[in-house]
Amino acid sequence: MNLSTTLSPARGSAAPRAKGRRARDPLPGFRLALGATLLWLGLIVVLPLAALAVRPWQEGASAMLAALNDGRMFAALRVSFQSAVIAAILDLPLGLILAWALVRTRLPGRRVIDALIDLPFAIPTAVTGITLATLYSPQGWLGAPLSRLGISVAYSVTGIVAALMFVGLPFIVRSVEPVLRDLPPELEEAATLLGARPWQIVARVLTPVLLPALISGFGLAFARGIGEYGSVIFIAGNQPFRSEIAPLLVVVRLQEFDYAGATSIAFILLVASSACLAAVAMLRKRAARGLVAEGAA
């Protein structure tokens, strides 16, 4: 059981005086917790990711190069990255408006709206997928009026963007909201008293302060977007080279038993989203430091 009792008192008192003895933590359980964590992390995370990192090279560099030299793959990656960027950009103003309304206005039904914003987090992606596909289909509640305007959403890149916008919206709101809440309203009032117009306040006072939060929300939404699968595939139409997203191509390659092809796409997706999240984490750390310095000054 308890690991720190392995040294019995009798042996302890007979032991030579502590000289260069490695200091052990007095709180019991370190080795047990470390062992359990390493086992769990090793089996569930490290081992599979190691397979992902090693597998593409297993069939030789030429197989890897062949897998990379695949126009359909590049098209799929382009569709994924493009849609994710566009969706995240379109979410920025929407998220900003929602965050602003939540923090700075006496919004009737605030609590309900606050809860609704987390809905895309809560609803399973398959449910989102079939719902958005139905909603934006040419006969759907939103698809029908839009198609009368000549805009077709479902079964195209537009549909992918619409789905990713839904999934990404909460990231923007929840990144901006706390920063906005900590921002003293006096800042805007001071700017007004100094003669700034509303658009000048937005451009010169608020945007610089909110920029780290906006970038961070953008990064999170983008990272989620490039890997998103369930909420997209039903609405995307999935035409190779046109509306086929990279995660779907991974599935297609697997069904063709082309593991090398599937793995190389997966690897690129993993690296891209990890890099994106690491950048967001760094940005947050820096922003936090900046705020601390400001508070101390």
């Binding site: 720190s4 009792t5 040294l7 008192s13 032991a15």
Partner: peptide, 10 residues
């Protein structure tokens, strides 16, 4: 009694 190696709880 020497305390080396004796955890706090003992």
């Amino acid at each position: 009694r020497a305390m080396e190696g004796l955890p706090p709880r003992e």
